[in-house]
Write a protein that binds this DNA or RNA. Structure first.
Length: 429
RNA sequence: GCGGAUGUAGCUCAAUGGCAGAGCGUCGCACUGUGGAUGCGAAUGUUGCGGGUUCGACCCCCGUCGUCCGCCCCA
């Protein structure tokens, strides 16, 4: 392989096989989202840097985004997340939209990070949000959509879990053990990082924040307390609704879930793979009640999450839940070209088939039939048609079933109807 | 941004510092009107790139780029 210009670092090429998987995933997402009454939308892939500068995490826009000047010197960002765009779109038409708003989207995003397993610089992300409803029911519904997606793709509660916590609850509990309001955001960060540090490092970090040894012990106890949610009316109601929606197998309380983004205000949740081979975050989100007001809209509560395509696809592959029969050959019929003098007749036959609504391709040039049959086999065609001198003189065409190996000769004018009938029979598999 | 591996034919990988190979795939033929099987044959390389050491480098050293695996961060 020489002199081939390399692809941009961290991007992926979707060959037909991978593209079929991506389309399959998109279809699943659409199916689940729409089953709950959510509408598809899409925003621009390019945004001004200002849109993210206001909120998001500092690091997300400063260090992890693709930002570059356009020809007039304005700084353009390849979107690293969708929520700011969503919030803008809602704020712009706040008076015209019907609330509560249920919207979903699936599209590309970019983050300037070091690529590795489960992470690329260009990825696809499912976003789904419920805006205009502040109740725990709204959070529960959104979490139920996530659970339904797992269920629809064959992932079981032993393979994935949705961990839930509530920032208001944690804020209150931190207050109870004597942390000042100024200390609490840092304490959130501390909790968020617990899994990423050794117990010693974590303890040092805690003491650095000014926690007393007694407070440290109290914090530890807090994070071990799986009953903590019972002290939150919001979460108590949330779990009731989750049970009513029939997805409680997937949803668990976890006092350690905090989430990194600064704009979350209430219930937060995270979909995790729990299989030993792949213990990673699949999706994450939460309630953001101040975001609309922050960008200049009237106050509106919202809740929603995002799921990237990379890790979920890895997990689905790992758990053997990717479909095996993805059809990468849209044209089940290949018309062969016998020789130069019959090329146009073959082209016309293929056109007749297409006019009848069948997907058909025609070999583009005369070639040995063995070569054309081999090609038909390679592209996964089910039928190969031969229009040679014998057939032509009789007004007929040979139809060979490539799976069964048998063939028959049929009148050419009946070919579209008969072939349609053959293809309508279930695929022998 | 930090650490560790790795880079040889289209793919998967061999080759102790001494002629750069195999399997699979591709192409051709057996089979000038029929694919998936079989047999025979053929093509394919600046060993990522640039330096260095050496009589001699795929092999050792330095640099660089890509990829992979961790960390950071996140989806």
């Amino acid at each position: 392989m020489k002199n081939i210009i390399p692809s941009v670092k961290g991007t992926r090429d979707f060959y037909p096989r991978e593209m079929a998987i991506r389309t399959w995933l998109y279809d699943k997402i659409r199916q689940v989202s729409e089953s709950y009454g959510y509408q598809e939308y899409e925003g621009p892939l390019l945004e001004t840097v200002e849109l993210y500068a206001a909120k998001s995490g500092e690091e997300l826009v400063k260090e992890q985004s693709f930002v570059f000047p356009d020809r007039s010197g304005n700084l353009i960002t390849l979107r690293p997340e969708l929520t700011p765009t969503l919030v803008r779109m809602v704020a712009q038409r706040q008076g015209q939209l019907a609330f509560p708003l249920r919207w979903w989207s699936f599209g590309p995003f970019w983050r300037y990070e070091r690529p590795q397993k489960g992470r690329s610089r260009e990825f696809f992300q499912w976003n789904i949000d419920l805006i205009g409803e502040a109740s725990p029911e709204a959070d529960a519904e959104i979490v139920a959509v996530m659970a339904s997606f797992f269920e629809a793709t064959g992932l079981t509660p032993t393979e994935v879990a949705i961990l839930v916590n509530n920032r208001r609850l944690m804020d209150r509990e931190l207050g109870k053990i004597g942390l000042t309001e100024a200390q609490r955001p840092e304490a959130f960060r501390l909790i968020d990082r617990r899994d990423k540090l050794t117990p010693e490092e974590w303890c040092d970090y805690a003491l650095e924040l000014g926690l007393s040894p007694r407070q440290f012990d109290q914090l530890l106890a807090l994070l071990e307390n799986l009953e903590l949610w019972k002290g939150s009316e919001e979460l108590a109601r949330f779990f009731e609704v989750i049970a009513a929606l029939g997805v409680d197998d997937y949803v668990k309380y976890d006092p350690q879930i905090i989430r990194g983004l600064d704009y979350y205000t209430g219930t937060v949740y995270e979909g995790r793979a729990t299989t030993p081979r792949l213990r990673r975050a699949l999706s994450g989100g939460g309630r953001y009640d101040n975001l609309l007001a922050d960008v200049g809209g009237d106050p509106l509560p919202g809740t929603g999450y995002a799921m990237g395509d990379v890790v979920i696809t890895l997990l689905l592959e790992d758990t053997d839940n990717l479909p095996k029969d993805l059809d990468v050959s849209p044209a089940p019929v290949l018309v062969t070209v016998f020789d130069e003098s019959l090329l146009l007749a073959s082209y016309k036959l293929a056109a007749d088939l297409r006019a009848a609504g069948l997907n058909a391709s025609c070999y583009p040039a005369p070639a040995k039939l063995s070569k054309q049959f081999k090609y038909a086999d390679r592209i996964g065609a089910r039928l190969a048609l031969v229009l040679g001198p014998d057939e032509k003189s009789q007004g007929q065409v040979t139809v060979k079933n490539l799976l069964a190996g048998d063939q028959s000769i049929i009148p050419q004018e009946e070919a579209p109807a008969l072939i349609g009938k053959i293809l309508a029979c279930k695929k022998p598999s």
